Structures are given as structure tokens and as C-alpha cells.
Amino acid sequence: MPDLILHHYPSSPFSEKIRLALGYKKLAWKSVIIPAIMPKPDVLALTGGYRKTPFLQVGADIYCDSALICDVLEHVQAEPPLYPPHLKGVARVFAQWADTTLFWAAMAYNLQPKGAAHVFAKAPPEAAKAFGEDRKAMSSNMVRLRPGDATSAYRSYLRRIAHMAEEHDYLFGTDPCVADFAAYHGLWYTRAQVPLMADILNATPAVGEWMDRMAAIGHGAMDKFGSADAITVAKAAEPMPAGQNLLIDSAFQDDHGIPLGSAVSITAETFGPEPTQGVLIAATRTHYSLQREDPRVGTVHVHFPRIGYVLRKAEGA
């Protein structure tokens, strides 16, 4: 199998989720550091528009969104499982909540003025302004929590997680599952990136102990890799045939009246509204796949999860 190439940056919370998942499965991977804000020319050459972090590249196949990346990692190496058979349903439901409701409460708390000032303390003022404008553009479709409301919600969520962590080493038992990785990364940002905001964790010591166990998993065997090298890899590779890639399901599920072979766009429901356009080559119960052409990377297949993304016919199609 071609190398697993993760496009990420160090302070990205969702990247930490995937870095730990790679470590848990003891997978070797290549690390491409990408910009935190636009412009991202190499990113867009590969994804066609999607600019959220991280994304996973395997040859000329591009897997977007950390939820879908977890599915890919499970297919690449089944053990240890992210989705234990007896927890498949509840772990996925919890992970979806953690990646959305919990995460946005945590980040609204983390990046209130005091936290944001810490993040950009060593950066020039224009850097903070550019980051703010970039994230404002990405969240144009969202209702953002105010700091006080976010703090109240975050405290409540931490207590609920503590009730789980008091019962087991991990949230659902003796071993971590996808729920742990999804719940961890927003809290990791509190402790690792804005430590002056981390006092909120003190009221739930069981959460801190669980976080220590998660951090001890590590990031696995990582090698640094250049962005230009990743472009070269994609250009030299052929994407895997639809139905034979690293996503298990392949049967066509038509919920939109859009046949395969149509020109379409796929856009995130909320955060990151930039569309990716291409030809629809797969629409299964779990994911969409687009084929697209780019002068720098040739033919690539870009994959998205169904949940959280909107499929439309391309304008004029």
C-alpha cells in the first residue's frame, strides 16, 4: 500500500486526534506541515477546495475530515480497533457529538480574548488579525457561543466525561475507541495550547488522568515529508478504482437523484464552506467520492463522509 501522508500542523486539534489514532494503531506515516490559514496552494491542488485540517493522502486518493480518516485507518489496520464490535453504534454517536458540540464549546472557551492573546503573544499583531479573518470566513454559516455560555457548557461536559472516566481507564472500557480520540482533542488544546485556561480542568481530576493516558499513546512512527513531495506522489500515482479504495462500502445509495458521473460540488454543512467540485464516482451509505483533474497533481479522487457534508449538482450541470 502507498504511504499514509497526513497533511496537518502542530497546533491543529483535529490533527492531534488523528496523530494519536495513528499512534494507537502503530502505523507509520509521513508528516506534511501545511499553513494554518489561507493561502494554501498545495492543499487546494490536492483537495480542489476543501481547506480544513487535517486530510490524509494515500497516493492520488485524498480523504477529507477526521471522521472519514478514522474509517480509513480502521480499514488499513483493524487492530487495535477504533470501533469495537460491541461499541460501534454508541462510539460513533458519541464521537460525532464530541467532534461538534463538545469541540465548539471547548474552542469558544479556549479562544476567548485571554486565550487568544496567549496563542498570539509571540506573533505580530497582523498574524492574529489574519487568523481571525480566516476563521471568520470559515465559520460564516455557524452560530458561535459567547465566552460565558461556552464556559458553562464546557464545565458541564467535563463533568459528564469525568463520570465516564471514573468508571474505566477509557470512556467506554479498558481500551480507547474512537470516542476517546474525538473527545480528547478539544481538551488537549486547552491543556497544551492555552495552559493559562486549563484551570477549568482542575475540578475533574478523572478527566486529567484520562488525558494523561491518552497522551501516553503517542504519535507512532512519523517521518517528515515535504509538501512538494506530496504533490509529486499524487502526480505519479493512479487513484484507486471507486469501490476498491480504503473505504469498505461501495454500493451506490442515491438519496439526491444525482446519478454517478454527474458534475457535482460537496460542501461542509457548517465550518469550512468552500466547495470541492468534480465528477461523482461514488455515493455510498457512508461517503462520497469525486474525481477531479488538476494541472499540478493530475487525476485525483477526493473522498468525504456523508454526515456533515452537502452534495449538490454543479451549477450549469
Rank of each mutant, 00 (worst) to 15 (best):
A108P: 11
A242M: 06
T53S: 14
V76F: 09
H168P: 11
T100A: 10
E16L: 06
E269Y: 07
E315K: 14
A127S: 07
A95G: 00
H287N: 14
L82S: 06
I161W: 01
E209R: 10
D99Y: 02
L73D: 08
H7R: 01
T270W: 10
M211Q: 05
H219T: 13
Q77W: 06
T232K: 15
L246R: 11
Y63P: 01
A314S: 13
L196H: 12
Y63N: 01
V58L: 09
W210C: 09
G173E: 14
Q57Y: 04
V76D: 09
L46V: 06
L22M: 08
G173P: 13
A67N: 09
T276Y: 00
M222Q: 13
G220N: 09
G89D: 01
N141Q: 15
R160C: 04
P35K: 07
V310H: 12
V302K: 02
L20Q: 05
G23M: 04
Q193H: 15
S139N: 10
V264G: 13
P259N: 11
R51K: 10
A198E: 15
L201T: 12
K313E: 15
A182Y: 08
E274F: 10
G257R: 02
A230H: 06
P124D: 10
Y9I: 02
Q253G: 07
Q244A: 12
Y24I: 01
L102Y: 07
S265N: 09
V58D: 02
G316K: 08
E269Q: 12
Y9G: 06
D42K: 03
Y24V: 01
A206C: 05
L82N: 02
K30Y: 12
K235V: 03
T174W: 04
M142E: 15
I281L: 12
A221L: 11
L158R: 01
A123C: 00
A221T: 13
A236W: 09
F55S: 03
A130H: 06
N141I: 08
E74K: 07
H86S: 11
G220A: 10
F55T: 04
A198M: 11
S15I: 09
Y157I: 03
D199R: 14
P295V: 03
A192N: 15
P10Y: 05
L311M: 04
R19F: 02
A105D: 04
A236C: 12
R135H: 08
P80H: 13
A45I: 00
T299A: 07
F172H: 11
D254E: 04
G298E: 04
K26W: 08
G48V: 06
A230K: 04
V76G: 06
A123I: 00
E315Y: 08
M240K: 11
A108H: 13
D149R: 12
H301G: 00
R213N: 05
H287C: 07
D180Y: 05
T151C: 10
E274P: 03
R306N: 07
L46S: 05
R306S: 02
L87M: 11
A221D: 15
H163M: 03
S227D: 10
F304W: 08
P124N: 07
G226M: 15
G89S: 05
I266W: 03
